[in-house]
Write a protein that binds this DNA or RNA. Sequence first.
DNA 1: TACCTTTTGTGAAGGTTTTCACAAACTCGT
DNA 2: ACGAGTTTGTGAAAACCTTCACAAAAGGTA
Lengths: 200, 200
Amino acid sequence: MEEEGATTVSSRVLAQRVGTTAAQVRKDLSLFGTFGTRGLGYEVRSLRERLREILGLAQEWPIALIGAGRIGSALFEYPNLRRRGFEIVTILDRDPRKIGRSWDGVRIRSIDEVGEVIERLRIKVALVAVPASEAQGVVDRLVGCGIRGILNLAPARLRVPDGVTVNEVDLALELEVISYALGARGTVPGEIRQDVTSDP
Amino acid sequence: MEEEGATTVSSRVLAQRVGTTAAQVRKDLSLFGTFGTRGLGYEVRSLRERLREILGLAQEWPIALIGAGRIGSALFEYPNLRRRGFEIVTILDRDPRKIGRSWDGVRIRSIDEVGEVIERLRIKVALVAVPASEAQGVVDRLVGCGIRGILNLAPARLRVPDGVTVNEVDLALELEVISYALGARGTVPGEIRQDVTSDP
DNA sequence: TACCTTTTGTGAAGGTTTTCACAAACTCGT
DNA sequence: ACGAGTTTGTGAAAACCTTCACAAAAGGTA
Ligand SMILES: NC(=O)c1ccc[n+]([C@@H]2O[C@H](COP(=O)([O-])OP(=O)(O)OC[C@H]3O[C@@H](n4cnc5c(N)ncnc54)[C@H](O)[C@@H]3O)[C@@H](O)[C@H]2O)c1
Ligand SMILES: NC(=O)c1ccc[n+]([C@@H]2O[C@H](COP(=O)([O-])OP(=O)(O)OC[C@H]3O[C@@H](n4cnc5c(N)ncnc54)[C@H](O)[C@@H]3O)[C@@H](O)[C@H]2O)c1
């Protein structure tokens, strides 16, 4: 919206864009403070800035990529991560044939250097793209080195201690959700909402 | 569990495995019927079979992959999709340099053949891995050809008519969720639950 | 300034989901 | 066949989330 030149936006328009209701937008925002001006709406630029702060996105996050395989390579070349404030600053693998190579200037290092690298680069978040059978072991090492957040691409359920955030992305599971939805036994909760607000 | 040789499982153990409570497991299952035996629990094999039916996974799903790029290639080589019942049976792209090649025996075809291919192979679900700017156009064509479910990897909000299910996976968004969680402003809803049931 | 219009922020109402807790139904060993 | 021990299935209670609806606060106009 900023790029479109809008300086101000109402909860109704915001709701339309993200697929929810105006009341929901206002209630959600109200949980973090008061951002709008009555009769006018929200100032686009300042709302964006406040939200970036709330989400912890005011800073750049350095990321460690674990697993220099097919999906790891695709992720590394995915420009959207950097545009959204996440930069893969180190790549760790176990395969001696990969260690020592560089991708676009970023060296692939041995997983054994994990502690040193994470400390030196002050990395808090890791992207895990190793085979499922390796995932728990890798995650244990990461957590031992002080990693606080993990985005796990491997189809494995991870155990981590309290205070560590894990987010799992399982594409096969997402297809299963679609499979269930097509069975037409009602609507799937969590499906993208396409309806639109109906405030006055 | 079947592979581990278990023949029977209680709601408590199921809950531990998936990270929820025993009561939740029982209530959820009860919405679809009655599966267990009092005093004993659930028979692993038959529960698995019933769940596969409920989720629509008794059949194999043929899938169309749209976009033979970096992520498309990684997905195509991802063996877990097939293991979970989804098989990429056609690949469609726009780039003349890619059209005509084959990946592991599957030809890359022109996106213009979408209608013919989808009908012939009876495809209902597509994986969309084209640039964000192309996503809506591609999806419109897919929907026009009778596709009913879409798993969208492009960071674009899609509009589809009623009756079409869209599931979006946005890795940058998942990292943003972690970023917020690390801000320690309370716990993130939807975070992986690690606690354990405490039924009697 | 007074008045009309717009839109927020938020209690209260309404709806949904999760948890509790227990009778009923089963197993198993004797 | 029985009794002790499990574990389910499920109403009812509690917790949580969304929607409603409106006073309050702002901008614009004359
Ligand atoms: N390919 C996909 O599209 C895709 C999609 C979703 C999820 N996944 C999952 O992502 C993971 C990786 O998939 P992939 O296709 O890239 O596999 P891959 O075999 O191409 O790559 C795995 C990489 O991990 C490295 N590795 C293995 N053990 C390691 C360890 N202990 N420490 C450090 N590095 C180690 C390997 O050397 C290899 O480079 C798998 O769990 C897969 O299920 C893949
Ligand atoms: N690379 C990643 O790790 C990654 C991760 C998540 C999401 N994504 C998203 O997935 C999409 C693809 O990413 P990529 O890295 O594979 O890009 P890419 O440029 O490597 O591949 C895109 C492919 O789509 C094809 N294409 C373009 N327009 C098309 C059209 N109208 N019809 C059919 N095919 C068309 C191109 O010819 C190309 O082969 C992007 O939207 C990207 O944001 C990528």
